[in-house]
Design a protein around this nucleic acid. Structure first.
Length: 346
DNA sequence: AATGCGGGGCA
DNA sequence: TGCCCAGCATT
């Protein structure tokens, strides 16, 4: 049996009973699709019911004030959806005389309607064979066909849209599209899917290669975080210094560094002095200190920007484990530390 | 190609 | 905590 036939069979047995599945009204189907963008059905369902009750037709929605619409949307998030919803309702009611656009190309022109939503409405309300590609579809297709092209790249978007379009059942696009999405939501779940009970498990590439947990591939958008590092450079009368090894996971694991105090902002000398050396191995020492670099040294990693100050501590004796400054070069240190050692003249 | 936009559920 | 959810608009 084909991939599509198995899906349809599964859907006829397992599909949830949802209000927008018992109508061909493009207005309510559109409403449901906007509400369900990036929103789980459990969360969106009560909003759908309220919107249909308060605005039974596109004219009712068009005649409402934006404030009323936003109030009804309150708590659902992504509020541009509500504003675009209202804008589009007015457009359809007053400029299109209430006639809902009835094909993918025209639907795509509506504010708040992108490729997915245009395909969904065109197929579900008007039986146009336009393939939907949402988060569920990416997951099902990437696993079943073993595709590891990242889904959040232009190449991935194009590849999955093409594949989905080649698979759609042209004689029943509405049922097929919804079956595919429902399958992703209920059976081919993001985490811990029950593949033993899956009707597609005999031909699923990801299952056969044990790659369920890896697919779909999604590139992480590494957000850059800023951190403030204060390295304590101790110098005693025997020309020794003190370093420690980074043992915890994260950057620079197992490399050596001067004792580090992280702060939530760049510290002035006064602030540094107030802070003292708490939580540092050097915290009980008496010392004089000097700031080496007035301007933060900014060290850029792929996902972190480290704003760094080096504080020079001159003291009589250092704790057990201090090492001769001359032996510093034997220890692996981050480039940031190595640059300091070189420039400081150690 | 990247980023902002929300809030809830889940492991 | 991080990831995901019937994505879209903007730059």
């Amino acid at each position: 049996m084909s991939f599509q036939s198995k899906l349809i069979l599964w859907y006829s047995d397992k599909k949830r009973d949802l209000p927008w599945r018992t109508t061909n009204n493009p207005y309510t189907i559109w409403l449901s699709e906007i509400i369900l963008q990036q929103t789980q059905i459990k969360q969106g369902l009560p909003y759908y019911e309220e919107f249909v009750a308060n605005y039974p037709t596109v004219f009712d929605l068009a005649e409402a004030s934006e404030t009323s619409v936003l109030k009804l949307w309150q708590g659902l998030g992504y509020y541009s959806r509500a504003r675009n919803l209202h804008t589009t309702a007015k457009h359809i009611a007053y400029e299109l005389n209430g006639k809902f656009p009835d094909n993918y190309k025209d639907l795509l022109k509506l504010k708040g309607v992108g490729d997915y939503t245009a395909s969904a409405i065109a197929s579900i309300a008007f039986n146009e064979p336009a393939a939907v590609v949402d988060g569920n579809v990416y997951r099902v297709l990437s696993r079943y066909f073993g595709i590891d092209t990242p889904i959040n790249t232009s190449a991935g978007i194009k590849e999955f849209k093409t594949l989905a379009s080649s698979l759609i059942l042209k004689d029943q696009p509405a049922t097929y599209n919804q079956a595919l999405m429902e399958f992703g939501a209920l059976q081919c779940k993001p985490k811990n899917p029950n593949c033993e009970a899956c009707p597609l498990n005999t031909n699923c590439a990801a299952l056969q290669h044990q790659r369920i947990g890896e697919l779909p591939v999604k590139l992480k958008k590494t957000k850059i975080t800023t951190k403030y590092f204060n390295f304590i450079v101790g110098i005693d009368q025997q020309q020794q210094t003190f370093i420690e090894q980074r043992t915890h996971k994260g950057i620079w694991q197992n490399l050596y560094q001067f004792p580090l105090i992280e702060s939530d902002k760049s510290l002035s000398s006064e602030e540094f002095h107030m802070l003292g050396l708490e939580n540092s191995i050097l915290e009980d020492m008496t010392f004089d200190y000097a700031l080496y670099n007035e301007v933060d040294v900014i060290h850029k990693l792929s996902h972190q920007h480290l704003h760094t100050k080096f504080w020079i501590i001159e003291t009589q004796t250092l704790p057990e484990g201090a090492i001769p400054i001359k032996s510093l070069k034997k220890y692996p240190v981050p480039a940031l530390i190595n640059d300091f050692i070189t420039q400081f003249g150690f």
